[in-house]
Design a protein around this nucleic acid. Structure first.
Lengths: 169, 169
DNA sequence: CCAAATTGCTTTAAGCCTAAAATGTTTTCC
DNA sequence: GGAAAACATTTTAGGCTTAAAGCAATTTGG
């Protein structure tokens, strides 16, 4: 009888036996723990050394890679955060003199933001140190580990994107 | 001359040449992207299906594993969030009838929280579905991929903890 | 050309989160 | 016993984040 139901399930996929997904769950929790650990550490160091928040640093990092500026939507997509979130972040960074914001000449809906001279200088200073923190946090991984992790995370990302997309369609 | 400086550096560790940590940086960004992608997806599904937030779900998950209850400090350590954060979360979950909070008999500083019957029932319902979402999001990984990721993430966690600890000492 | 849909951004309301200071409690140690 | 240290939690002030609604500008398709 056990064989019978198993065959039915594996051949027809009509029966939903309670499958065991404990391994995937544990993987997800470990991934989350890892990320939170590192993110918390980076957040703390940015605050202590430079009195800057992680979201601000991340936004400046995006702009550093785009000398011609970006629109708020671009930033929002790249950072994977909501539009309203970016609006607030940009507001505070313009206020503190790190960002320059201007309305596009060709489309008055669009706001183009850039790093100011101050913003770029400060970011470069922070980024240099940030890079050493990251290297330090990952120091015990061999080059091979790093390559393998990169590969597996790429696969994971693709898998998750596929699953997310199929739900929305 | 190149050989000379390289030897000096590798032997004495006294010279700090600008090393290249681009690989580690890319790894960190990919790790972050992956986690954010999955976390966002889970957050959205929890909200749509159950009108519950991820932090609330996470807190209930901790309590589900502790039938005898936990103190707020325990929860705060397990979830890797601040004390004040837990205070607020618990407040709202007690308010909504999912949690029971009482002061410890033996130590009046300590608050012990537990899932109520309602809280446990709702959590179990959500957790069952949550598990299938996770399985789905990781569906394209082979069992070998999963094992390998688990191993590499464990190594990463250990490395990061070591680095974080050494900074604080 | 013009109504309808889309797009880019902001606002709103609510909740999450942190670090630091404050409060009350218990333990330590002289 | 009693002061000092440690501990558990809450409060405070500020910033981050989201979803959803709203507004203005542009594009689309008759």
């Amino acid at each position: 009888m056990g064989d019978c139901t198993e065959m039915l399930d594996s051949e027809t996929k009509a029966v939903e036996l309670p499958e065991d997904h404990a391994e995937e769950l544990r993987l997800w929790l470990r991934l989350l723990t890892c990320t939170n650990l590192i993110e918390g550490e980076v957040r703390g160091r940015l605050r202590q050394r430079f009195d800057v928040t992680l979201p601000r640093f991340d936004l400046m990092a995006q702009l550093d890679k785009a000398p011609d500026g970006m629109t708020l939507s671009d930033v929002s997509k790249r950072m994977m955060v909501s539009n309203g979130n970016v609006t607030g972040l940009v507001e505070r960074l313009v206020e503190s003199g790190h960002l320059d914001r201007r309305t596009s000449e060709t489309d008055r809906r669009v706001q183009v933001i850039r790093l100011t001279k101050l913003g770029r200088a400060e970011f470069r200073r922070m980024a240099a140190e940030h890079e050493t923190w990251i290297a330090d946090l990952f120091a015990d991984l061999t080059p091979k580990d790093v390559r393998e992790l990169m590969r597996l995370l790429a696969k994971t990302k693709a898998s998750a994107q596929k699953s997310a997309a199929s739900r929305r369609s």
